[in-house]
Amino acid sequence: MNIFRLMADLAHVLAIVILLHKIWKSRSCAGISGKSQILFALVYFMRYLDIMTSYVSFYNSTMKLLFLGTSGATLNLIYRKFKPSYDHNHDSFRIAYLLVPCALLSLFLNHEFSVLEILWTFSIYLESVAILPQLFMVAKTGEAESITSHYLFALGSYRALYVCNWVYRYIAESHFDLIAIIAGLVQTILYCDFFYLYITKVLQNRKLQLPA
């Protein structure tokens, strides 16, 4: 564990807390893509199946359970409790366009052809693009509430900090996992445009509005 990874995990937890708090406080999930949240739930479920087969640390297991639990809770809020506020007309990204390529890619580009390993690989590929329905929704409506922007910034920072962690681990431990690194870079690059808008608009107390 190094400082980058700790910061990354904390940013990830912060993102989840911001999202749950926003939905709960406003009693609404307007502006939130349920499809991205379905993809994230799928990511955690596929990746953290190993909670039953391999033990890394108390920290790891606790975080895995936390991510599984909170993603389930988020889906419950969007698709059950506050379903009337769910903006499904604007959440029109076809997730099959992400699921199918990720599934095929994980069958061909993996570290080992075993069930758990392929599911892990699939989750890594899927996570890298899981935010696209949400970004698509922001692009479609042309705006995002500040709180949604904070959520996206925290969530984007998490994988960017993991990239720093991987650079550190490569130097300090000669450890690297090419699949995670490339997918992490793709994931971070997808947020770049948003990061730019966040820094130039939201941090100046302006609403995130895209040019028409």
Binding site: R5, D9, H12, R47, D50, S54, V56, N60, M63, K64, F67, H111, E112, E117, W120, Y162, N165, E173, S174, H175, D177, A180
Partner: peptide, 10 residues
């Protein structure tokens, strides 16, 4: 050094 398919990160 760990085998590559031991995933110790989240």
């Amino acid at each position: 050094q760990q085998a590559e398919n031991v995933h110790d990160e989240l």
